[in-house]
């Protein structure tokens, strides 16, 4: 209120209500936080591009020589190229798991939002309760059960638990309620379409952005789940990249530590790119219903 407004700045209204000092303070604090959040990733990028063996030298703040391609070549040849096998495993587990999981979530969430049926309330309460309990807590019991039915060292032991996503069902229900009007469904029914056809041709199309969000959340959730694959997959040719890299890191010097640095960058880069490219879907999922 106190500063004089320069005429052309009228559009940027908030400017007039803040003093330069407060702007500077806020900027400094936010800058500090940005440094905290970005420094480890920046270090990872810089270190991975340095010539092989120099990863842990220098300040780590700035590039020093270029060896990224050589590093990736070394990464690819370590242990007969098992790194790329791990990457492929990760993509398969996450892709297949998220695809099936999203389908199941969409079907269930849609039914919960749009139909009245016996057991509906109980099912929804169960889903909510399961969202609250973290998945990791189920891992040991799952391991015990899988070893009881001899599913250890079988990709199914990772995939089967991964496709069940209570949070996905919850999101699908919220989104189906918001984005699929009953009138449209009713119109489809009057045209003689069966219930499943109505779902497939009308509801899925209207829920599509929401389904992308659910897919993303599930993909990342599966990628993040370390304990389950680490326990049920002993064969390193079946493991996802997170489990493989941790094993390399724990091998002390059997695998050169610089390879862990480079492998970390390579395994994180696609996730980061996808994350930046698909930001709006993320926020849609996180704020769905949270601001109510």
């Amino acid at each position: 209120m106190t500063t004089v407004i320069p005429a052309p700045a009228a559009r940027i209204r908030p400017r007039r209500e803040t003093s330069p000092a407060s702007r500077l303070t806020v900027l400094a604090l936010l800058g500090l936080s940005a440094f905290y959040f970005l420094f480890p990733l920046w270090w990872l990028l810089v270190a991975a591009t340095k010539p092989f063996g120099e990863q842990f030298g220098g300040s780590g703040l700035w590039f020093d020589g270029f060896g990224l391609f050589d590093n990736i070549a070394r990464l690819s040849s370590q242990d007969d190229g098992i790194f790329w096998r791990w990457m492929l495993n990760s993509v398969l587990y996450c892709g297949v798991g998220a695809l099936i999981g999203t389908t199941l979530s969409a079907l269930t969430g849609y039914a919960l939002a749009k139909y009245d049926f016996p057991g509906r309330g109980m099912l929804f309460s169960l889903v909510l309760a399961a969202v609250l309990v973290p998945k990791v807590l189920f891992t040991l019991p799952l391991y015990l059960m899988f070893s009881g039915v001899h599913l250890i060292d079988n990709p199914l032991a990772v995939l089967l638990p991964s496709v069940v996503s209570p949070f996905g069902v919850y999101l699908a229900r919220v989104f189906a309620e918001q984005s699929v009007p009953d009138e449209v469904l009713e119109a489809g029914r009057l045209d003689g379409a069966g219930e499943f056809r109505v779902f497939r041709t009308i509801a899925v199309r209207m829920m599509l952005p929401a389904l992308v969000t659910i897919f993303l959340f599930q993909f990342v959730e599966i990628w993040n789940n370390y304990l389950l694959p680490a326990m049920v997959l002993g064969d390193d040719r079946l493991q996802p990249v997170t489990v493989g890299l941790v094993a390399w890191n724990a091998s002390h010097v059997a695998v050169p530590p610089p390879l862990v640095v480079i492998g970390s960058l390579v395994s994180v880069a696609p996730l980061l790119i996808a994350f930046l490219a698909l930001q709006r879907f993320w926020r849609a999922g996180m704020t769905a219903g949270a601001v109510k």
Binding site: S33, A34, F37, L38, P40, L41, W43, L44, V220, W223, N224, Y226, T242, L245, V246, N249, V260, S264, S267, V268, L271, L272, F275, L276
Partner: peptide, 16 residues
């Protein structure tokens, strides 16, 4: 920037 670490899997973050 503050949200970016969320995109890094917990295990990878711990490695870094």
């Amino acid at each position: 920037t503050s949200f970016v670490p969320y995109a890094i899997p917990g295990v990878s973050a711990a490695l870094v």
